[in-house]
Amino acid sequence: MSNSRGAVFVTGASSGLGEATALGLADAGFTVYAGVRSAAGADRLTRANPAIRPLTLDVTSADSVAAARKELAAETAGAGLHGLVNNAGICVSAPLECVPLDDLRAELEVNLIGAVAVTQALLPLLRTRSAATAAAEPAGRIVNISSGIGRVAAPFLGPYAASQFAKEGVSDALRRELAPLSVSVSIIEPGAIMTPIWSKVADGARRVLDAAPAEVAGSYRARFEEFVALNEKRARDSRTRPQDVARAVGHALSAPRPRIRYRVGQDAWSAALAARLLPDRVVDALIQRQFSAVRASAPAPAIGGTEAAR
């Protein structure tokens, strides 16, 4: 390792929040190892910053996780890891009645079980860093990227909400288990941000609805179109950028007393307050009112048809 701030590993760094986080941490002086799925993702990162070191990683593969751990242990040469950023994730969006169970399993495998698998594999390296550092502040640090959807479950995002609610719970348990070992655990809860995930969400939902029986899909299609329009508008209008998430991760990895939760964006704060203060029926009514506003302002883009999505 050449940088004094230590080595960090970021999963899901090929694009979006992970890419911005890897670049931001490298600029801040960390030695960044970036988990990517493809050579194209690795090339894009190293072109942007040649100091970033890509590692091929599939968080759902035990062999891939073990290989990444072995490489990180060799690269850090006994010094251990300063931080782990669990960012890898997918978003399955569709009415729950229509969601194939294999898609639900994939959502949980990537967003939840994959994060736990990587954490289990790398905790010995994080504890190594802790043992070699003064106990005045946490040395080994884990940062889990969650979502505002991990506080308030939106309609048509049931699988994604399930994974994020679960990640919040796992993070809380992990933080309490690791505190005596000088390993901190922080959660980042971003609100709406325009990243490539939104086109993937719409494409995946089209595939699910087109595969469902016509009478079932017909019960949801119009409201789902409104949902897509609402989410795209939120993301495009949002002032929150991937770099804002990267800065929150940087704080969690460097502050003497990192926060437990970092809410990034006004809508993330609103979701947290709503979950804490408002009765569930009031939250339901507010969500329905947002759908009504979209319906009144403009026709939603059509989602559906016969074209395959992937």
Rank of each mutant, 00 (worst) to 15 (best):
L23I: 08
A26S: 14
D27W: 06
G29A: 01
G29T: 01
F30Y: 03
T31M: 01
T31V: 01
T31R: 04
V32Q: 00
V32L: 02
Y33M: 03
Y33Q: 00
Y33T: 02
A34T: 08
A34D: 01
G35W: 06
G35I: 09
G35R: 03
V36G: 08
R37Q: 05
S38T: 12
A40I: 12
A40C: 11
G41C: 08
G41H: 02
G41W: 02
A42L: 14
A42I: 14
A42D: 08
D43H: 09
D43G: 08
L45N: 07
L45Q: 03
A48P: 06
A48S: 09
A48M: 09
N49V: 13
N49E: 10
P50I: 10
P50H: 10
A51T: 14
R53H: 13
L57H: 08
D58C: 04
D58F: 07
V59R: 01
V59F: 00
V59D: 00
V59Y: 00
A62R: 13
D63S: 14
S64K: 09
S64R: 12
S64C: 07
S64L: 10
V65N: 03
R69K: 05
R69D: 02
K70D: 15
K70N: 15
L72F: 02
A73E: 07
E75T: 15
T76Y: 06
A77S: 13
G78A: 04
G80S: 10
G80E: 10
L81F: 02
H82I: 11
H82E: 09
G83D: 04
V85A: 00
N86Y: 04
N86G: 10
N87Y: 11
N87H: 02
A88I: 05
G89I: 06
I90H: 13
V92W: 07
A94D: 04
A94L: 03
